[in-house]
Simulated assay, not measured.
Amino acid sequence: MPKNAKKKRTQNYKKQIGQVPGALIYTGAKEGNKLHLHVFDYNNEDYKEGDLDSVEEAFRFKDSETVTWFNLNGLNFVNEIETIGNHYKLHPLILEDIVNTSQRPKIDTYQDYIFIVLKMMYYDDSEKIISEQVSLVLGKNYVLTFQEAEGDVFNSVRQRIKTKKGRIRSEGADYLLYALIDAIVDHYYAIIETMGNKIEDLEDDLFTGLTQEEIAQQIQNLKREVLKIRRAIFPLREIINRLEKNENGLIKEKTTHFFRDVYDHVIQVTETLDIYREMIWSLMDMYMTTISNKMNEVMKVLTIIATIFIPLTFIAGIYGMNFANMPELQYKYGYYIVWIVMIVVLVGMLVYFKRKKWL
Results as ranks from 00 to 15, higher is better:
90 L>I: 04
125 D>C: 08
160 R>H: 03
152 D>L: 12
163 T>Q: 11
158 R>K: 08
83 T>Y: 10
90 L>A: 01
158 R>M: 03
84 I>T: 05
91 H>R: 01
144 L>E: 05
101 T>N: 04
136 L>S: 01
108 D>K: 04
136 L>T: 01
154 F>L: 08
77 F>N: 01
98 I>C: 03
162 K>I: 11
158 R>T: 14
79 N>W: 04
103 Q>Y: 00
134 V>T: 12
142 Y>F: 15
150 E>T: 14
143 V>E: 10
123 Y>M: 13
133 Q>H: 09
130 I>K: 13
114 I>D: 02
148 E>C: 06
157 V>R: 00
85 G>R: 06
83 T>K: 15
146 F>T: 05
94 I>F: 03
140 K>E: 12
139 G>P: 03
157 V>N: 03
112 D>E: 11
163 T>I: 05
83 T>A: 13
150 E>Y: 00
80 E>H: 08
139 G>K: 04
128 K>V: 08
149 A>E: 14
137 V>A: 05
162 K>C: 07
153 V>W: 06
100 N>G: 02
142 Y>C: 10
130 I>Q: 13
97 D>F: 09
140 K>H: 09
125 D>G: 15
76 N>I: 10
121 M>N: 13
83 T>Q: 14
114 I>R: 02
124 D>H: 14
160 R>M: 08
128 K>P: 06
140 K>Q: 11
105 P>C: 03
109 T>D: 11
84 I>Y: 11
149 A>K: 15
128 K>A: 07
144 L>T: 03
91 H>Q: 03
137 V>F: 01
117 V>R: 09
115 F>H: 08
82 E>R: 11
106 K>Q: 07
129 I>M: 06
132 E>M: 10
128 K>C: 03
117 V>S: 06
100 N>C: 09
82 E>H: 11
126 S>Q: 11
80 E>P: 11
122 Y>I: 12
100 N>R: 03
127 E>R: 15
122 Y>G: 09
112 D>C: 07
155 N>L: 15
97 D>W: 00
79 N>C: 02
152 D>V: 10
129 I>G: 10
93 L>H: 02
89 K>H: 12
129 I>V: 11
154 F>P: 06
118 L>G: 06
102 S>M: 07
84 I>M: 11
79 N>K: 13
